[in-house]
Amino acid sequence: MALISHQSGLLTLIIICGAVLFMIYRARQGLESEVRRVAGIDVIDEAIGRSTEMGRPVHITNGLATLYSSGAPQTIAGLSVLSYVAKKCAQNGIPLITTIYVPETIPIVMEMYREASVLAESPEWFDDYNIRYMSSHRFSYATGVQGVLQREKPAASFLMGSFMAEALIFAESGYLAGAMQVAGTAATSQIPFFVAVCDYTLLGDELYAAGAYLSQDAVQMASIAGQDVGKYLAMILLLVGLILSAMGSDWLVNILKL
């Protein structure tokens, strides 16, 4: 057992993955899972529609996390949203400006733009000028995005990914530009700022669910239901731990430290 690190973590991972895979299996058998509506995701189409009516561009940015860091899931989730938004913008013929912090996502975003223009049968929509790498330094990136928001005055701004202090700079600049703002992040320190300033906010795991939710694919939606098993497990452990610690026992704490 000493040759296996983080045994309790491994067991937890197996349980959660097992639950997700089970729910995916059920969905493939035709038993769909019900996922509650997430206002921040539902409103994406409305925001893009607003931009179309006003004839103003849409802006999106995917935050700070590189694809090899612990925040990579947020960037991946943000790219999923970007892909959807690009497709919609191409269909509506409005420019989508993507501001980038992580340079390795530039080719990914370019490919998304190309695919969106092909799917919309609108090759002229693709303009790589709208894919703008700002900087890999936080406040240079913040300044660049602020400038884009103030000059281009988008009607919709999507802030999807991992953010730190610059979150409020983006949100306030977007507000001053008159943009409808939808934000999504798992960075707990920035959630309050987004909630206070943006029109809609995806909190924590709602961002991760965005890709599956937007696909409207029953099998992907089932994976969102599967992760709830992990939450139930956490609640059970909390209750058991509460009772045991009230009785003066460290047993569960020691087990979970393995």
Binding site: S5, H6, L64, A65, S69, S70, G71, R138, S162, M164, A165
Partner: peptide, 26 residues
């Protein structure tokens, strides 16, 4: 001040080795 930072050290240093850590942050 952000990421990478404490979260990464927690996983690679504090959890496996139990090193004593004192933090300073924003």
């Amino acid at each position: 001040s952000g990421t990478p930072g404490w979260g990464e050290y927690l996983r690679q240093w504090q959890t496996p080795y139990g090193i004593t850590v004192i933090g300073g942050t924003l």
